[in-house]
Amino acid sequence: MILEAAFLQVKTGMELEFEESFRKASTIIASMKGYISHELQKCMEVEGKYLLLVQWERLEDHTVGFRQSPEYLRWKALLHHFYEPFPTVEHFERISLNEIL
């Protein structure tokens, strides 16, 4: 499993509109091959800051399957105009604590 993490800074005053658009966009990402789950968290300290976490089966399910799909163009049209600056997206893999101990 791969965890995609993106910090999203939404333009001031657009938070409610962003959240509504994100609800619509959620159906897009949830329909993609390799998608497991996602959640959106709102920062308590910084206005307009959100954390998006998406679980994928494989890295390529996000970087190729989603990002190179027609569905991504719909996602982009719904959400990308809200961001300033554009988000940084990183991918993480779980470390087994049993192997460390």
Rank of each mutant, 00 (worst) to 15 (best):
F66P: 03
F18V: 01
K42N: 07
K76D: 15
H81R: 08
L97K: 00
L97Q: 02
R23S: 13
M1C: 02
K49G: 03
V10H: 00
E99V: 07
T63Q: 10
I2N: 02
V10M: 01
E19I: 07
F92R: 01
Q68A: 12
E90N: 12
L8I: 02
P87L: 03
G34N: 13
S31I: 08
A30F: 07
P85I: 01
S31F: 05
Y72Q: 11
R67I: 12
T27S: 13
A30R: 14
T27W: 06
S31G: 15
A5H: 00
S31P: 14
V54G: 02
L3E: 00
E17V: 00
I28Y: 05
S96L: 08
G13T: 01
I100K: 04
Q68G: 06
E57D: 13
A77E: 14
V54I: 15
V54P: 13
L8V: 00
A5G: 02
F22V: 05
F86N: 01
I29K: 09
S26H: 09
H81Y: 13
R94H: 08
I36Q: 14
E71N: 08
I100G: 03
S69L: 05
I29D: 10
P70E: 08
S21I: 03
L79D: 12
T63R: 11
E90D: 14
S37K: 15
N98W: 04
A25C: 07
D61P: 07
H81D: 12
E47L: 11
L79F: 15
E45D: 12
I95R: 02
E57Q: 13
A5K: 00
E4K: 02
E84C: 09
E4C: 01
W75Q: 12
M32F: 06
E20F: 01
L3W: 00
C43E: 07
Q41F: 13
M44Q: 12
L59M: 14
L40E: 08
W75A: 15
P87A: 13
I100C: 05
F22R: 02
A30S: 15
L73G: 07
G34M: 10
I2S: 03
E90I: 12
Y72P: 11
E84H: 09
E71W: 04
P70I: 05
E90R: 06
R23K: 12
E84V: 06
L3N: 00
M14F: 06
F7H: 01
K24Y: 08
A6N: 00
T27V: 10
I95P: 01
V89A: 05
F86S: 09
R74N: 12
K49T: 11
Y50W: 05
I100D: 01
I95M: 06
L53H: 02
E90S: 15
L3I: 06
G48S: 06
S31Y: 03
F92L: 01
L8Y: 01
T63N: 11
E47R: 10
D61N: 15
L79Y: 13
R74K: 15
L101H: 07
A6R: 00
V64E: 09
L51S: 07
F7M: 01
H62Y: 14
T12Q: 02
Q9T: 03
I36E: 15
Q55F: 09
Q55P: 08
L3K: 00
G48F: 08
V46R: 05
L59A: 14
W56Q: 10
A77G: 08
T12M: 01
A30K: 13
Y35C: 15
S26L: 04
